[in-house]
Amino acid sequence: MGSAKNGSGKTGKNSSGSARQTRIAEMRRAEQARDRRNRLLTIGASAVIVAALVVGGVVLVRSQSDSGASDSANGDSKTSGKFVTDADGVRKWQGKLSRNHVTKDVDYPTEPPVGGDHNQVWMNCNGDVYTKPINNVNAVHSLEHGAVWVTYNAKADKADVDALAAKVKKTPYTLMSPVEGQQDPIMLSAWGHQRTVSGADDPNVDTFLEKFVQGAQTPEPGAACTGGLPQ
């Protein structure tokens, strides 16, 4: 009788241990399955995020391309703001001056302009003196390179025009041309800055050149003033 009892107890223990091992195995399988599902969900979510970023990037690039094409077609300078005159008499543009390359003329808010969208080709500005009007969209690109643009209209004295031309020819990163639509006889323009001078002997001429030729206002310092567009 005692032998049978011992056998029955061992069998019960073995059976209980086997059931426990089975449950443990099932729990491990369930945990492994849950981990696999979580990994798949994580991978899937990551893939969705990456795909969304890729699609978003493509849409953004296309949107920017479309915007650029629209700018080129419409000649929209996207420039806004106004001049604020400093104590030294220099007018500084307070606002936005866009810098997109466009293929058509731009309707600038000032004459001559001091910045904004422009043609991808600059006017040569290595002391170049133009005796005929030049395109604003090319001259603005020269300003972007750090040039100072000396302009005059029919009211300017010929002696002043000749003296300024001589000065420009000796000064790299400058150019000069007539602009009949400007308000004052002689004006100096740099990117975002402009002033009127009374003549070639006005000390503000040298002051403006010293400050703004390749000055701190230059969006693209060191960019070329040769190899562009001659008249």
Rank of each mutant, 00 (worst) to 15 (best):
A165I: 02
Y130T: 05
N119L: 10
D71C: 00
T85L: 02
G192F: 01
V148Q: 07
P113N: 07
V55H: 01
S16R: 11
D202T: 06
A73M: 04
Q183C: 00
P219G: 06
D206V: 08
H193A: 07
R28I: 13
S46R: 06
G56T: 07
V197N: 04
V161C: 01
D88N: 15
N124V: 09
I186F: 03
K155T: 02
Q217H: 07
M176H: 04
D160I: 06
V137G: 10
Q21C: 00
V90C: 02
K211R: 13
L175E: 09
L175A: 10
K92N: 01
A30P: 00
K158G: 00
Y152H: 11
T103V: 10
A147S: 15
A224E: 12
I186N: 03
A216D: 13
R99D: 15
D86M: 02
R195N: 01
Q214K: 05
N126F: 02
Q21T: 11
I134G: 09
L41D: 07
G146N: 08
V55T: 14
A223D: 15
E210K: 15
M187N: 00
C225L: 08
Q32E: 15
G81A: 08
N119M: 08
Q183P: 01
M27R: 14
A33D: 11
D128C: 05
A147R: 10
G192E: 01
K5N: 13
A224N: 11
N14I: 07
Y173E: 03
C125I: 10
G146E: 10
R29N: 15
G115P: 03
L229I: 10
V129P: 09
R34Y: 05
G2F: 14
A52G: 13
L164I: 05
A45K: 03
V148N: 09
Q231V: 08
T226M: 07
E180F: 03
P113Q: 07
D157N: 13
G68E: 12
T103C: 01
S77F: 00
E144D: 14
R28A: 12
D105R: 10
V55A: 13
T103D: 14
G57P: 03
E31M: 08
V129S: 09
N14D: 12
G181H: 01
V148R: 04
K170A: 15
V121A: 14
T79N: 10
N38H: 06
G75Q: 05
P178R: 03
L229T: 14
K167E: 06
D184Y: 07
H193I: 00
P221D: 12
K132D: 13
D86Q: 08
K169R: 12
V213T: 14
K78R: 10
K104Q: 11
Q32V: 02
Y108I: 05
D202E: 04
V48W: 04
Q120T: 11
N124H: 07
D128T: 13
V48L: 14
A30R: 15
W93R: 01
S98W: 03
W191Y: 13
V90K: 00
V129N: 07
P185Y: 04
D162K: 09
Y173F: 13
P221M: 11
P203S: 07
W191V: 03
H145A: 15
T103Q: 11
S63E: 04
H141R: 15
V137W: 06
K132G: 05
V61W: 06
E26W: 08
M1W: 08
M27I: 04
S70W: 14
S16E: 09
N153T: 05
D35P: 00
V54Q: 06
A87G: 01
N74Y: 03
P172A: 06
G75E: 07
L53P: 00
R28Q: 15
